[in-house]
Design a protein around this nucleic acid. Structure first.
Length: 830
RNA sequence: GGGGGAGUGGCGGAAUGGCAGACGCGCAUGCCUUAGGAGCAUGUGGUGAAAACCGUGCGGGUUCGAAUCCCGCCUCCCCCACCA
């Protein structure tokens, strides 16, 4: 229903035809059609005269609908791309879909819809929603990772990694539902139970494929080639978790097993004389072997229970440290002490050697454990100034060795080296480096992912699928059962295949790859998305890589971003590309939240579409960016969106005002001129820092200043037009539709998005006179107005004479003055 | 538990050693209007008649000067190996 235009029934001082009103619903689709027709955002690699700028936002998972969280993330990326174009760069800004993953499979089970159909429906819908945003993507380069033309390259990379010794098959622990006989993702485990059948979930080992990221651990610690936020670099360093220490063996030969020693890793070999017990992880191969008959039942029960706890639970310091005696003992090689062996779940099988030496005096967790099981506490590093009383807390700092035989009296730092030397000399162990990072487990017991191109043959063993048979495609007629079991294991046509070597009946690998495989190299695929002869173009990649600017969310701080760095190096070492780092600059935007937490598909999506229908895409874009700094995120509420709409209406009106009715001034309006140069200075500076909220604030201020200039009636037409141009040019990256519409309505050449940034002149920023704040003893007492070029002496004299200053210096002696040129004068008086 | 970030008016935020609260929301008053979830104008941290004083989570410190730097504490949010 259309409302009657009431306004022209009444006296309107300046009646405007309806079509001159700002109507986003009319102009936004029209502008987007013009851009598309002109192929405005198509990447043109042949334009080598311009410097290149590859700017990429982390591609979305096609979960169904874009929510305002997506808009928040992708608007910022688009603004960055548009700004770089106006700075004169040749910009590539692509987009795609990270289309493999668990939700598609869940939908298949729940709604009996094929994951492929579900995924492509979602992609179509999200493409439509993306286009509403008006982002400057080159959609001709869209990639979809579940397309066989894409995942074929995952399979080829997998085989190449295997050939180069960078992929291996080893046991790994999974969440296992004993009722459904299937692997569960962490998110499918609710309170230790299977979310489908409520059976208690256990940990189970099964053979899985890994990539040898640990071989690159030290290289990944080198971040000299990348400009990333420090918080991300810190996260990656912590994740890699490099620590230097000693592997030392404790003698268990008295039990007559083929294994004569338990190896433990410690970074504190200086505390070796303080060892009063030893703890094995429940998964440790010796845990069962060493357990004495009378302890057997207790240990078995404990190990079964431990298999149910998650890793994060287990290493939590608030959780009580528990363990159980094995009844066995081992010998500390340095002092021949015989110490008891426990099994405890605060020790992780995956870190170090899966066994730790217990030094309760110098480790908080060990102390807690020792107190619980009444084990002795022996201090071996004396804190400085210690009076010899027993320590109340574990002491982890430096000090002097005591109770440590010939090392007594040394600093513990020196003792670390001396003890390590002695251990190496006697063959009890060796210095080693341990990493917290494990190899990258890529196997997933799922359907909706890249099939791992391997065939298992009884005679030939593990046989790679030959390159000319790739891709190994997902069968389309798979069945999705409520148990969640991988459909590939039940699909005879997929499972059974002849061995490529001996042609005997054999079976395919039914696991698929982690979706982080897809995202480890996708940026390169944007350069040649339709090329079926190679994964990416070596020449283009050499010229266009690395990605200059990558933006995304904090949740990818470690895994995706570390895997991509690893993968790039692996490709380099296999001769497939010639650079080290995939992403040169990185920007991590914040998250939009509601009272219920972070906005996401899973928790509380807020749909942008109704807001676009009511306010327009430009208003929503600006509103989201005006909420706060892009890297901080913030709380979502639409309570202020109307303010942005009002402002864009004012931009509309002020930009078209002169053509209707211009009140000409004769001379340049100096205040407006200064405001213009100041605007460009602050906008350009803040755009480089992604501070879009203050960019918008500066533009709002400028609109107010233009209105003041209009009221002064002082600006000549040319100056006014230049001001409108400047306003629109700086607005264009943020609100691309209205900026281009107004640009064209003013008769300027299509498109505003092909224009260069306005220039500014530092001399024009400086005012002729400056207001100087005058303080007495640090408190503001007056302000004075001075010529911009006034010297300190003149300012000081004027400041002392100011009435507000006089009042507070009367009867006092002026000790000194501090002058901040052009800004502030502080008078110290007592 | 570990790692990261943040605490400023009624609200979102600005200011990173120099006028605290830019810009906007909300609110108030006025104008316009048959009408307004529209538009325009003015005002808007607190106390106070004023002068002035107080004020950036809390307590201390450095400094001529601290939201900003340092020390100690409190609170909240985000991320953490099969969600992507």
């Amino acid at each position: 229903m259309t409302r009657a235009p009431h306004s022209d029934r009444h006296t309107n001082p300046d009646p405007a035809p309806v079509k001159d009103k700002y109507d986003p619903a009319e102009i936004e689709p029209r502008q987007r059609a013009l851009w598309q027709e002109a192929e405005l955002y198509r990447w043109r690699p042949e334009r080598v005269e311009k410097p290149k700028w590859f700017v990429q936002s982390m591609f979305p998972y096609p979960s169904g609908d874009l929510h305002v969280g997506h808009w928040f993330a992708y608007t910022g990326g688009d603004i960055a791309a548009r700004f770089k174009r106006m700075e004169g760069y040749n910009v590539l800004h692509p987009q795609g879909f990270d289309a493999f993953g668990l939700p598609a499979e869940n939908a298949a089970i729940r709604d009996q819809i094929h994951p492929q159909k579900w995924t492509y429906q979602n992609i179509a819908n999200m493409r439509r929603q993306f286009e509403l945003m008006g982002n400057s993507y080159d959609w001709s380069r869209q990639i979809v990772t579940c397309n066989p033309e894409y995942y074929k390259w995952n399979q080829i990379f997998f085989l190449k990694l295997l050939e180069h010794g960078l992929a291996h098959r080893s046991d790994g622990s999974v969440n296992w539902c004993p009722d459904d006989q299937t692997t569960l993702a962490n998110e499918q485990v609710k309170d230790g139970k299977c979310e489908r059948c409520e059976a208690i979930v256990i940990k189970r080992d099964m053979p899985q494929w890994y990539f040898a990221i640990t071989k690159y651990a030290d290289e990944l610690l080198d971040t000299s080639e990348i400009d990333w936020p420090e918080k991300i670099l810190v996260s990656q360093r912590n994740w890699i978790g490099r620590s230097e220490g000693v592997n030392i063996s404790f003698d268990i030969s008295e039990y007559g097993l083929e294994t004569k020693f338990i190896s433990t890793f410690t970074t504190r070999i200086d505390t070796i004389y303080g060892v009063t017990f030893l703890v094995l992880s429940p998964e440790h191969p010796l845990a069962d072997r060493l357990t004495q008959t009378e302890q057997k039942e207790a240990v078995d029960n404990y190990v079964t229970k431990a298999a149910r706890a998650s890793e994060i639970e287990r290493i939590s310091n608030t959780r009580e440290k528990t363990g159980v005696r094995t009844g066995a003992y081992c010998i500390n090689p340095l002092n021949r002490d015989r110490v008891p062996i426990f099994v405890g779940d605060y020790v992780l099988a995956t870190y170090g050697t899966g066994a730790v030496m217990g030094v309760p005096a110098h480790d908080a967790r060990d102390l807690e454990f020792a107190r619980k099981y009444e084990l002795p506490v022996r201090t071996v590093v004396n804190p400085p100034g210690c009076d010899g009383n027993e320590l109340q807390e574990a002491y982890t700092g430096n000090g002097v060795q005591i109770n440590s035989c010939e090392f007594d009296g040394m600093s513990n730092e020196d003792a670390k080296e001396a003890i390590a030397d002695k251990i190496q000399a006697n063959g009890w162990g060796e210095r080693t480096v341990s990493y917290h990072m494990r190899d990258w487990l890529i196997s997933r017991q799922r359907y909706w992912g890249t099939p791992i191109p391997i065939i298992y043959c009884d005679r030939c063993g593990i046989v790679p699928v030959p390159y000319d048979e790739l891709p190994v495609k997902l069968p389309e007629d798979a069945e999705f059962t409520p148990s969640g079991k991988s459909p590939l294991t039940a699909h005879k046509g997929f499972l059974n295949a002849p061995c490529p070597k001996c042609n005997a009946p054999a079976q395919r690998e039914t696991d698929t790859m982690d979706t982080f495989m897809d995202s480890s190299w996708y940026h390169m695929r944007y350069l040649s998305p339709q090329d079926n002869t190679k994964p990416f173009d070596l020449d283009l990649s050499t010229r266009w890589a690395p990605v200059d600017q990558y933006t995304g969310g904090m949740e990818h701080a470690v895994m995706h971003l570390l895997y991509a760095r690893f993968f790039n190096r692996a490709l380099r070492d296999m001769g497939l590309l010639h650079f080290n780092e995939p992403y040169r600059h990185l920007f991590i935007h914040g998250a939009l939240t509601t009272d219920e937490g972070k906005i996401s598909k899973r928790s509380n999506p807020i749909a942008p579409d109704p807001l676009v229908a009511k306010y327009g895409a430009d208003t929503l874009r600006c509103y989201l960016m005006f909420l706060g700094p892009w890297d901080k995120g913030g709380g979502w509420s639409d309570s202020g969106i109307n303010g942005i709409r009002r402002w864009l209406h004012r931009v509309w009106e002020i930009s078209l005002r002169a053509s209707k009715r211009f009140r000409n001034g004769a001379e340049l309006d100096r205040d407006l001129e200064r405001a213009s140069h100041r605007l460009s200075k602050s906008v350009i500076k803040d755009m480089h820092a992604y501070k879009y909220n203050t960019v918008i604030a500066a533009l709002m201020t400028y609109v107010n200043q233009m209105n003041e200039a209009w009221d002064r009636n002082a600006a000549p037409l040319e100056q006014w037009k230049a001001s409108v141009q400047r306003l629109l040019l700086h607005l264009a990256p943020l609100a691309p539709h209205i900026a281009d519409e107004l640009w064209q309505r003013n008769g300027w050449k299509f498109s505003i998005h092909n224009q260069n940034l306005p220039q500014w002149d530092e001399e024009m920023v400086i005012a002729e006179t400056v207001r100087i704040v005058v303080q007495v003893n640090g408190k503001v007492r007056d302000t004075i107005s001075m010529p911009a070029d006034a010297g300190e002496k003149e300012v000081s004299e004027a400041a002392c004479a100011a009435t507000g200053v006089q009042r507070h210096t009367k009867g006092k002696e002026i000790r000194r003055t501090i002058y901040v040129p052009g800004r502030l004068m502080n008078i110290v008086a007592t």
